[in-house]
């Protein structure tokens, strides 16, 4: 199985630890992923701004980069959703069709392709899960509250399988965080307010570690947590799993969640 790792542009530059954890976790699950260095971006920032036409060269570059892999795996449901849903505007060559089908969100890949629904490991903290809208409503990785009261999904199942981990029960399980790509700049006031409300819900219900499958949402939420100096740590879920799945004997996750202003991961 040839797996290409897609590390979204902002993760590459600002959250390398998320890329590293993705690489290492896949390795622990027996998958040696390859990172084609000519990769750039999926093109979503342009397309969501209305410049889909300008994004086409980026789409072609993405396909060109990843067409030789059986699977393309990314720690970002949003980018994956974009490739699958919106790469319909370029000519549907065999390569384009293949890449659209073969691109997976990391946890979807772990659950659906590798067939892993539980992970051994320990993470004795209260974890609040932020569902990204593109992962949940776009890729149907979790139940939507619009349809059913049952709160379930790929990522929540994986997290619950960790020893010692408590998942926060939120007032609003799947409200959008307000990141929304360029929305977070063009509609700054509403975006910030949405993020503050999400963080508040987690704070009220005891979240120590705020996590999710999409670093873009988390970057936005982390920005608020740090600005307000809240006693909450923000980690991509892959970082949690990678820490929890240490080889036996190693002590795991010794950090105590605290104000994150001075913290570095």
């Amino acid at each position: 199985m040839k797996v290409g790792l897609f590390i979204p542009c902002y993760v590459d530059q600002f959250y390398p630890q998320v890329g590293i954890a993705t690489y290492q976790l896949l390795e622990k699950l027996g998958v040696r992923a390859d990172f084609p260095v000519k990769q750039t971006c999926c093109g979503q920032p342009m397309a969501n701004t209305g410049c889909e036409q300008d994004a086409k060269p980026v789409y072609r570059h993405f396909v060109d980069t990843f067409q030789g892999y059986d699977y393309v795996v990314a720690p970002s449901g949003s980018c994956v959703y974009h490739v699958r849903k919106h790469y319909d505007v370029v000519e549907q060559t065999g390569a384009v069709q293949h890449v659209r089908q073969a691109t997976y969100d990391l946890f979807d890949f772990i659950t659906s392709v590798l067939g892993v629904t539980e992970l051994p490991g320990r993470f004795p903290h209260q974890v609040g899960l932020h569902l990204s809208c593109h992962g949940q409503r776009g890729l149907h990785q979790a139940n939507e509250s619009e349809m059913t009261p049952v709160r379930d999904g790929q990522l929540s199942r994986l997290l619950r399988s960790l020893d010692g981990l408590t998942l926060t029960e939120l007032s609003r399980n799947d409200e959008c965080c307000g990141f929304g790509g360029t929305f977070c700049i063009t509609e700054e006031a509403v975006s910030a307010r949405m993020g503050q409300d999400r963080v508040q819900d987690h704070l009220q219900h005891g979240t120590q570690v705020l996590t999710g499958g999409d670093m873009s949402c988390l970057m936005h939420l982390q920005g608020i947590v740090r600005r307000r100096q809240l006693p909450m740590r923000v980690l991509h879920a892959v970082e949690i799993f990678n820490v929890a799945l240490q080889p036996s004997g190693t002590s795991v996750s010794t950090f105590v969640p605290q104000s994150t202003t001075a913290e570095r991961v």
């Binding site: 600002f14 959250y15 910030a192 993020g195 503050q196 920005g223 608020i224 740090r226």
Partner: peptide, 9 residues
Amino acid sequence: KARELPEAP
């Protein structure tokens, strides 16, 4: 205005 930028590694 309301958010910190990520800390650059």
